Structures are given as structure tokens and as C-alpha cells.
Amino acid sequence: MTRYAALLRGIMPSNPNMSNEKLRGVFTGLGFESVASVLSSGNIVFTTGETPGAELEKRIQEALSAELGIAGGTVVRGYAELRALLDRDPFAGYTHGRETYLTVTFFKDSAHSRVEMPTDTDPRTKVVGYDDQARAFLSIIDNSAPNTPNFMVWLERNYGKNITTRTWLTVQRVVKKMESPK
């Protein structure tokens, strides 16, 4: 049995069909164990003996769509992958805060074999790099101005909707929850 995190795209906590209780219910109904939610933005941790990858992501997404009408995407990462990302500390020397977001954009397993670094991003976005092992794009976004930098638009335009972004703090919280499943 392995511990995983499902990072769901497009979850809006204000939508009654997207509540943590209902999301956990779908995962429990799929036969997963130790199902728990992290925050209220589509982060579900669970345990299963299934092999990770596209088939597991597809099975979860089909259940979310059929039972709750959630059409967004599902990206699954194992505990070891996320723990190793934290241990590599790609944001060393930076601090996540209200005006500076450290972000991790996760790609589905087979979404892209090669990720190109942007050359024309908003000046308020600093690209840290792409982490091959975690299959994740790492960036720092300056939120000090009232309008949001267009980096997320750039990511979606270049890589489609088979991605989902979390703040570094959220990734840390997900890993912590995976370490203590109750």
C-alpha cells in the first residue's frame, strides 16, 4: 500500500458538489483507504495498492465526473515523489508570502516529454525551473500589484489543461498530511 495525493484542478469550495466531504466520499467509494483532505481546494490524500500513473488518474477523474459533475483534471503524485521535491528545496532562500507566491505547477505523467522554459514571461514572474523528478514547473510570482501576472495563462496556453498549480505552502501541507494520515 502506498500513500498518494490527488491534486484536483478547478475545485471551488463554494460549489456544494466540490466540498471536501463529497470529494472524500468519491475516493472512499473507489476503495481507497485513509482518505483525507488538505485545505479546501482539491487536495485529497489516500492509500492504495494500485500502481500510479495515467490509469489511476483516469479512474479518479471518471468517478469525480460521474458522481459530482467535476470535469477538471486529476494529477496524482506519490508520497516519495513529493517528499523528495521538498527535500531538494528548489525555493531555497525565498519566502512564500502575501506578495510573493512560490508556486509548483504539476504536469500529468505523460503530458509532455519536454518542457521549454519561457522567454517572454511577465517581469513579475521568476521561473525557478522544471523539476524532472516531480514533473513540476517551479516559479515565483510577485503579487504586490493589483493585477495578476499572466504566467498561469502562459502555462495553460503552452501546456493545456493537463496541469494544476499549488503554492509551495500547500505542497508542504499535503506532504505533512501524507505523513500523518489520521
Rank of each mutant, 00 (worst) to 15 (best):
M1T: 10
T2H: 11
R3L: 10
R3W: 05
A6S: 10
A6L: 05
G10Q: 06
I11F: 03
M12V: 14
P13F: 08
N15G: 08
P16G: 09
P16S: 13
P16T: 11
N17S: 14
N17A: 12
N17Y: 07
N20V: 00
N20M: 15
N20P: 11
K22Y: 12
L23T: 03
R24H: 08
F27R: 01
F27H: 01
F27E: 00
T28H: 08
G31Y: 05
E33H: 06
E33P: 00
S34Y: 03
A36V: 03
S37G: 12
L39K: 05
S41C: 06
F46Q: 02
T47W: 06
E50N: 14
E50W: 03
P52C: 04
G53Q: 10
L56A: 13
K58I: 01
Q61A: 12
A66R: 04
A66F: 02
L68P: 03
I70K: 01
A71D: 13
G72S: 07
V75C: 10
V75T: 07
V76I: 15
G78C: 15
Y79D: 14
L82A: 02
R83H: 11
L85T: 00
L86I: 06
D87W: 05
D87M: 12
R88K: 15
D89H: 08
P90H: 01
A92N: 09
T95G: 00
T95F: 00
G97N: 11
G97H: 08
E99Q: 12
E99H: 14
T100Y: 02
Y101M: 10
T105F: 04
F107Q: 03
F107G: 01
D109V: 14
S110F: 07
S110I: 15
S110Y: 06
A111R: 12
H112Y: 15
H112D: 09
V115P: 15
E116I: 15
M117V: 12
P118M: 10
T119E: 15
D120P: 01
R124T: 05
T125V: 15
V127T: 15
D131Y: 14
Q133A: 15
A134G: 08
R135S: 12
R135C: 06
R135Y: 04
A136I: 15
S139L: 04
S139P: 01
N143V: 08
S144C: 11
T148L: 11
N150L: 12
F151C: 05
F151G: 00
V153H: 07
L155H: 06
R157L: 09
N158D: 14
K161R: 13
K161W: 11
N162S: 13
R166G: 05
W168S: 00
W168G: 00
L169A: 00
V171H: 03
V171Y: 02
Q172P: 01
R173W: 00
K177G: 04
E179N: 07
E179Y: 07
K182I: 01
K182D: 09
K182S: 06
